[in-house]
């Protein structure tokens, strides 16, 4: 197994999951590098590129959730967590994207990871349930509730404008 190729193929997936989950580029990069390092140490046990991708996805999900729990005990503010100035953007879609990313980042940890895996990684609820070791009904409930919360917040923001 070519480790450099595994890094090249998966770095975007691993980094994106971490940065969207933690909203701290520096911390996310550190965590993502650490996960690749963990994989490097287990490389002899990795059978195929898809096995490597699955392993990395699972590892980054669990490491992100652990890191977020640690940060709850000792908060660390990343640059991405600092609110942006309330200037009207000339690109409404970009502004909406940023609002959505922020809303996702404010979801509780498990729900946030479920939403990221669903919409960033395009995994279906069965795969998410397997990856996060949770019942499929919980995954569906997280998705349903998260979407309802975000929809409600977007509607309120539209009304306030």
């Amino acid at each position: 197994m070519d480790f450099a190729q595994v890094v090249a193929d998966n770095q975007s997936m691993v980094f994106s999951l971490a940065v969207r989950f933690l909203r701290d580029r520096e911390g996310a990069e550190e965590l993502a590098q650490d996960v690749f390092l963990q994989l490097y140490e287990k490389l002899s046990r990795i059978e195929s590129p898809s096995h490597a991708t699955g392993w990395l996805r699972r590892a980054i999900c669990h490491r992100c959730i652990d890191e977020a729990r640690k940060r709850r005990l000792r908060p660390r503010v990343g640059l991405d967590a600092v609110p942006e100035p309330l200037a009207e953007s000339r690109h409404p879609d970009l502004l909406l994207n940023e609002r959505l990313r922020r809303m996702v980042a404010e979801l509780p940890e498990s729900a946030r990871m479920v939403v990221l895996l669903r919409y960033q990684e395009d995994l279906d609820p069965t795969d998410i349930a397997g990856l996060l070791s949770m019942p499929i009904s919980t995954v569906k409930s997280h998705l349903h509730r998260s979407l309802a919360v975000m929809r409600g917040r977007l509607e309120r923001q539209e009304i306030c404008r």
Binding site: F3, A4, V7, A8, Q11, S12, M13, V14, F15, S16, V19, R20, R25, E29, A32, Q33, F36, L37, Y40, D93, L96, N97, E98, L100, R101, V104, V115, L116, Y119, Q120, D122, L147, M150, R151, L154
Partner: peptide, 26 residues
């Protein structure tokens, strides 16, 4: 909302020197 979320949560590229840093760490 599904489509908007998919658009907002697209993967983003890792930092340019990411792979080099990982190799150095190995």
């Amino acid at each position: 909302l599904d489509d908007e979320l998919r658009a907002a949560l697209q993967r983003e590229p890792a930092p340019v020197d990411f792979a080099a840093k990982v190799t150095a760490k190995t």
